[in-house]
Amino acid sequence: MNNYSAYHHSFKNLQEKGLSFEQVFERIVTFMNLNPKGHYRLMVGTDSQVHKSQTVFITGIVIQNEGNGVWACIRKFIVPRKMTQLHERISLELSLTEEIVAMFTEERKNQLIAIVLPYIYEGATFTMEGHIDIGAGQRNKTREFVKEMVSRMESMGVEPKIKPDAFVASSYANRYTK
């Protein structure tokens, strides 16, 4: 990300601070191993908030076992200026999401799939989603960017979700941008 040197911040959640991506991945593996027959959704999404002299970006990583709990963490990224251009901000949100998605290499994804694989005939599932904080509704200012952002996620082999289904970006990450 060129000139943003403060970029590689660590991850944190309410229980832990200063987690590396390796540690985040280990937490996800541990969480999934608790119930390998689960219905897992690995979701990544970013939201931003423009403040007086900076713009705060929060990327959330959420592993959800549908109906059986979640494990989640965030990473904060600060741009030291007000980013008033909506397209620039949405695009950077997606770039930050893409960066995390890319950390889930084929090898890592296969490791996660291997946890549920012995149980797929018993209903176990694993999907990965990219949550984009945009909406296609008529009154939504971001609707003109939907096609571009959705195809960026799809090109990474991740299922894109937009509002109202993009809750990692629009709800979880959003809480930490204030």
Rank of each mutant, 00 (worst) to 15 (best):
R143A: 11
A6I: 04
V168A: 02
E66W: 07
N3R: 15
R81C: 13
T125C: 06
E88R: 06
V146K: 10
T105G: 09
S151D: 10
M156C: 08
I113T: 08
G45T: 04
T105N: 13
D165K: 05
V116H: 02
I100L: 05
G130H: 04
A166R: 05
L112C: 09
I63T: 06
P80H: 09
I120F: 01
Y119Q: 11
G69L: 12
V29N: 03
Q23H: 04
L42Q: 01
A72F: 07
N35F: 12
I90D: 02
V50Y: 08
A72N: 15
Y121G: 08
F11H: 08
V116T: 09
N68W: 11
M149V: 12
I61V: 13
V62N: 12
V168D: 00
V24M: 07
A166H: 01
E154I: 15
T105Y: 06
E99I: 13
Q111S: 12
G137D: 07
R143T: 07
K82A: 15
G69T: 10
E88Y: 03
E26N: 09
R27M: 08
R143W: 10
T30L: 09
K76L: 06
Y172S: 03
S48T: 14
D47F: 04
M43V: 04
W71D: 08
V24Q: 03
M149F: 01
K37F: 13
E107T: 15
R108D: 09
K12Y: 10
A173Y: 05
R27N: 12
I28D: 05
N2T: 12
G135E: 04
D47A: 08
K76D: 09
W71Y: 04
R152I: 10
P36M: 01
S91P: 09
L42R: 01
F31R: 14
I100A: 02
I28C: 13
E22M: 08
K163H: 10
Q15K: 15
F31Y: 14
E107K: 14
K109C: 05
Y7G: 10
G123K: 07
E99H: 13
P118K: 02
E148R: 03
M83T: 11
H9T: 13
A166I: 07
W71H: 11
L14F: 02
A114Y: 00
G45A: 05
F31I: 14
A102C: 12
T59K: 01
I132P: 00
C73M: 02
E66S: 11
M32K: 05
E26G: 11
P164Q: 08
S171W: 02
V150D: 07
F25C: 10
K17H: 08
Q54R: 07
E159M: 14
M32Y: 14
V62A: 03
A72S: 12
T127N: 13
T177R: 00
Q54P: 13
A114M: 04
N65W: 09
V70H: 00
K109V: 15
H39C: 10
